[in-house]
Design a binder for these strands. Sequence first.
DNA 1: GCAAGCCACAACCAATGGTTGTGCGCCCTT
DNA 2: AAGGGCGCACAACCATTGGTTGTGGCTTGC
Lengths: 328, 328
Amino acid sequence: MDTEALRSFVRAAELGQFRQAADELGVTQQAVSKRIAALERELGVRLFARTARGVELTLDGQAFLPHARSIAAGVERAITAVRPGSRALRIDVLGRRSAQAVVLHDYWRAHPETDLDVVTLRVDDPRIAVAAVEAGEIDASFRTVTDPAVLPPDVHIMHAFDSPLELLVGPGHPLASARRLTPAQLRKHRIWVPGIAPRSEWAEFYDQLATDFDLRIDAAGPHFGDEVLLDTLAESADVATLVGARDRYIWPADHDLRRIPVVDPTLVYPLSLVLPGTNPHPGLSGITAHLESLPRAPEPAWLPPWATTPRHGERGTPTARGTRPRAR
Amino acid sequence: MDTEALRSFVRAAELGQFRQAADELGVTQQAVSKRIAALERELGVRLFARTARGVELTLDGQAFLPHARSIAAGVERAITAVRPGSRALRIDVLGRRSAQAVVLHDYWRAHPETDLDVVTLRVDDPRIAVAAVEAGEIDASFRTVTDPAVLPPDVHIMHAFDSPLELLVGPGHPLASARRLTPAQLRKHRIWVPGIAPRSEWAEFYDQLATDFDLRIDAAGPHFGDEVLLDTLAESADVATLVGARDRYIWPADHDLRRIPVVDPTLVYPLSLVLPGTNPHPGLSGITAHLESLPRAPEPAWLPPWATTPRHGERGTPTARGTRPRAR
DNA sequence: GCAAGCCACAACCAATGGTTGTGCGCCCTT
DNA sequence: AAGGGCGCACAACCATTGGTTGTGGCTTGC
């Protein structure tokens, strides 16, 4: 099926004439006639009744019209999604089930008119993401640059939102029935976070976390996918992992996994957004405003030392907050 | 843009290989390669990065994929909407702004998975609608057959829902500030209902209404469209019309038209649905169940004598209720 | 009765979209 | 290091499509 034929059909149905539609579309009347005839042949039904003063829709044509409109609009959106120069807002997330994607989805549901495309760079190195933002291939990226020195001058970074961590354990784990946990209670338990690339933002985060609270965080081993991780957790009595509270993991109901909030202090993974300093995409301001409206994690909270952006309405360095949990 | 190329793109993106996609689609690998190349040329971007073991999506390809999926799904729905034999549920309404369309829209919003097409036969004669139902061109029609003798044996009719009437007047009309009106209060005022075909269900209804309540109902004159009617009402100090309470008329805000409920008794236009007795469309049962769940108009109510279907939970003939309003 | 307007058909031609055959590059094996 | 396997791209070829112009039939309105 040819989408040009669909557009011709829509226009002819709206105008009631092949001739006018043809003029608007810049082709001859005969071309429109052939396009419609081809559509009718392909569908096996008559779409128009030919009258003396033009055409009018048959019942099949009436039923077909809204679908044709919707397809033509979809084609339009698809083209704007990739059109070089003025394409739709494009944001890089680490995964479709991540809290980042959830936050973007929330924004899109509140502003459904936004042409927003969510993509994944499939690389761990934040420098590649920064380069992609700088080159304009993506309009923003949920990455953290722990060393601000690597940022080019026309690339900025902002705090996106706080992602409080929860412990994810199977039903046989000794902590499975806890309603909430403190970091101190995690001390003797093995926490397995596979698939962490060395020297990545996640590695640094877990290193710091393990040091500050004396935890047994095991980042070794390849990551065979979420399914393997979740299966392992479900069957094991001594393996736990940490997940973001807003991450959307999906597991079979019979796995009976439990998410347990960690509090006092809340362990916060601070997510950042890498953005271009010059010529940002016009749709980006809505996203940043939405991010700034999100509440920060509740106090007391622990954040890694490289989260140098001060929390709203606060003075002092977050590093000071980070090294020792502080009661509110 | 060719939708076959889009389907190829989606399948290739999902499988990560042109070869497999080509096998599934029943064409050669070279054909898929050419289709994708044509898409890329048309869009002006590269959709796939060619690797040694197949292909993987570029950022543009990632952004394009959900749109391509949505278009392909739309094409699928468009085809099922008209496919002879097993097409989508198709229901005839008198107009897109009528209460009938509103009720169908309500149903569809509650059951968005329903493939439902709303069409309009554009004829006044209910016998044509009955013939269309009998022939299977439409699956149901919101028409009223006042003489059941014309119904073929395999076509049925059911009460659909009650449509209480409201008076629609401009700001200069003497009744414009009323909160509600009784039929007796309408007696001296001219009520204009243009575009009523003689001997149609509407003509019979208004005839009966005028007789029973001694009203001045003027059904003469051609109907030049809703805009003309609404403009006339807005400017006139002595013309009013009747509209269904759920009809969706749209008028400019500065027209300042008012809808005034008519009560004591409520004037009810009883809408019916014409359906086939044999081989009804499988999706029809949901519609009829929805219609039966709708509340009847509040008592006291006036209905035309030919509304012979007894109201739920009532005995006796509605004709008796019709000739004289009865208090609850 | 005739002119005007609109759609369909015919003839023609360029371009498309499919095929088969082949070449190139990468990975993995030996 | 060499070679086979695999997967995509390019070339050549051909049937079909999708555009054009020209024309005819039909209805409508003057």
